[in-house]
């Protein structure tokens, strides 16, 4: 079917609600009103208030209740209306859900999905725009999905709900209206999409790793650079935990150069981890320094001019790619600059 990212999410939720009576959706204004971003629109009419639970504005109790239900057979899908509000539920995500399988020696599982609406929608300012995936990638015990296309939103969400572990599922605000073809699942999926990246564009000079909305910027940058004779391969990891190391290595074997692009601030962002993986495991494949492009290390500002200045776009990704292709002089004391 042709679907928007929001429709793909809705389709996945509907199929999972249909498949398993233990699946239920829980969150603020997700039921009768269909969600602030419309992701659950129409599901309340179809599945009713026992399957879509509208909650008070109590992120800790809501996520905690989802975790508790998941321990005894529930398969809750929580919506965090703005990922920024995850800060209010961090104990339940980080200290409870992420660790419960481990701490209990495998006795309990916490199979919940926390859907987090992430990134800027334009002038949404510092408390409604953040890209916080690194917080969760850094916490052992959580899986982290970052779908960039309607197809992946559908496929990864279905897999996330069926997964026995807690999954943090990021949905970018600017992607909800993105439309493309989504092949519907015909039977139980045989192979996992988690940990399996996709090459979104083939190329030979530079690998750009990107995800969520920035992936579209990376593809746009690759298009611009092609006109300059620069061939970019764009690699979408689809999930950050697990991360497709083999897919990254295969791409670097072709290109030898790596740029990582994400909307989150560069400092200690996921790009740092991907760069470290590449440096440690693919050092012999690399022919140029690894470069990262991402949000500046500031809160997200309100004014469009300032916001645009702080967040990555296709132009900035393209110039970063050009920089790794520049000929480099051998390092010596005289040309070594302190940064």
């Amino acid at each position: 079917m042709s679907a928007t990212y929001a429709e793909a999410i809705r389709q996945a939720l509907a199929e999972e609600l249909e498949r398993d009576p233990n699946v239920f959706l829980i969150g603020e204004d997700i039921g009768e009103s269909g969600g602030v971003f419309g992701a659950t629109k129409g599901l309340w009419e179809r599945f009713g208030p026992d399957r879509l639970l509208d909650t008070p504005i109590s992120e800790e109790a809501v996520v905690g209740a989802a975790v508790g239900a998941s321990l005894i057979g529930g398969r809750p899908v929580v919506e965090i209306m703005f990922g920024d509000f995850a800060a209010l539920a961090m104990d339940m995500i980080v200290n409870q859900a992420a660790k419960i399988h481990y701490m209990t020696g495998g006795q309990l599982c916490a199979p919940l999905v926390v859907r987090m609406v992430t990134g800027t929608a334009g002038a949404t300012a510092a408390q409604h725009s953040q890209s916080l995936e690194a917080w969760f990638v850094h916490t052992p015990g959580l899986k982290v999905a970052v779908p960039s296309t309607p197809e992946d939103a559908y496929v990864l969400l279905k897999e996330a709900i069926e997964d026995p572990d807690p999954v943090i599922f990021f949905e970018h605000k600017m992607l909800y209206s993105k439309r493309s073809y989504v092949p519907l699942a015909t039977s139980e999926s045989s192979s996992s999409s988690f940990g399996t990246g996709r090459i979104r564009r083939e190329g030979s000079d530079v690998t750009i790793v990107s995800y969520l909305k920035t992936l579209d910027d990376a593809l746009q940058a690759a298009g611009q650079l092609e006109l300059e004779g620069i061939s970019c391969e764009v690699f979408d990891p689809r999930t950050l935990v697990p991360f497709d190391r083999d897919g990254l290595a295969s791409s670097l074997a072709k290109t030898g150069r790596l740029v990582i692009a994400h909307e989150a601030p560069v400092r200690a962002g996921v790009g740092a981890e991907i760069a470290a993986i590449a440096a440690a495991e693919c050092f012999d494949l690399l022919t140029a320094p690894i470069a990262r492009v991402g949000g500046l290390n500031t809160p997200v500002p309100y004014a469009p001019e300032m916001e645009h200045f702080t967040l990555p776009d296709a132009d900035r990704i393209a110039s970063t790619v050009r920089s790794v292709l520049e000929p480099r002089e051998p390092l010596s004391a005289s040309n070594h600059k302190e940064v």
Partner: peptide, 25 residues
Amino acid sequence: FLGANGIVGGGIPLAAGAALQLKRQ
């Protein structure tokens, strides 16, 4: 017995969630 808990107050929402699941069942 769904566990002791190292976080003060950490088990309270979990119990409510378990109660929610029991009620749903």
